[in-house]
């Protein structure tokens, strides 16, 4: 096992170190002998208004996604866990509810592009129900694009929370609820005084991980809109991709990646502190 562990460590650490190094050099990969430029790449990056816009939109995208992942995941987990539900129904619903999870990002996007196309089935249904009068451009309207992309990301990502919380709910001792019921506690009390506190260690770990992952969410945004229209869905991840593979500024792209890393590191630090306080 230990040689494998060593390989794993190398594979984890070396690329990260290389990205840090790249971010302090002049254009790596394209130049034969890149020079050390210190923090110049970071200065250029931070002075770009589009980068700053992307930073703001990344925050909106990430926070909204995590909140809805958690809310939907928790709501669905509680419903699926209900004792009022026959076992067969519960089993079938569970399978339906994890569906968004089993598709690769490109299919998720293609599917929603088909359905949200101006001529797609969603507009058709909304038209039939007289909810809209003109064809809504879900992706092409700069005012709607970010919301649409977040919606798709929420759809694709909540099963992770749901499955984990469903598992967490099993770990809550039933006698806690029984005791509460004897004390005359309503469902609200039981939810806030037992369920939430019991799930808290799992929720906090998942929220942090989901935050870090969504900060970097790339395939869904890029395949759906490429960051457009008019940078309306530009996030650090799409911005970084364009730097690397469209503008071929690999050093700048590394710097942009490191910025994202630093944001994640701050979040991680809070988590670790919280864990420590718990010990």
């Amino acid at each position: 096992m230990s040689p494998t562990l060593l390989v794993m460590l190398v594979m984890m650490a070396v690329p990260v170190v290389m990205v840090f190094t790249y971010s302090t050099l002049s254009n790596v990969i394209m130049e034969r002998e890149p020079e050390f430029v210190g923090l110049a790449n970071y200065a250029t990056l931070l002075s770009d208004p589009i980068f700053r816009k992307a930073l703001g939109q990344t925050a909106i995208f990430t926070v909204t996604s995590v909140v809805f992942h958690l809310l939907l995941g928790l709501a669905f987990a509680l419903m699926l866990n209900s004792t009022l539900l026959p076992r067969l129904a519960s089993s079938l619903f569970r399978v339906v509810y994890i569906l968004p999870w089993v598709f690769t990002a490109s299919i998720v996007v293609i599917l929603w592009q088909l359905m949200l196309n101006p001529n797609g089935v969603i507009n058709y249904m909304l038209e039939t129900l007289n909810l809209i009068s003109t064809k809504v451009e879900w992706f092409s309207n700069p005012d709607l694009a970010l919301g649409t992309v977040i919606f798709i990301n929420v759809w694709a990502g909540y099963p992770f929370f749901m499955v984990s919380l469903l598992a967490g709910l099993q770990g809550i001792p039933k006698d806690l609820y029984e005791a509460a019921e004897i004390d005359g506690a309503g469902w609200r009390d039981r939810f806030f005084n037992i369920t939430i506190p019991q799930l808290f260690p799992i929720i906090i770990a998942m929220a942090m991980l989901d935050f870090i992952w969504n900060l970097q969410q790339f395939p869904i945004i890029f395949l759906a809109t490429g960051g457009g229209p008019l940078n309306a869905t530009e996030t650090i991840a799409t911005y970084t991709y364009n730097l690397a593979f469209s503008k071929r500024e690999f050093a700048m792209a590394s710097a942009s990646g490191v910025v994202l890393f630093l944001i994640s590191a701050i979040v991680a630090l809070f988590y670790v502190r919280h864990q420590k306080a718990r010990d």
Binding site: Q113, N117, P118, K135, E137, F139, S140, P142, A145, A224, T225, G226, G228, P229
Partner: peptide
Amino acid sequence: PGAFTQQEQQ
């Protein structure tokens, strides 16, 4: 409609 994100194949 949808020109700003339409793709070649669509």
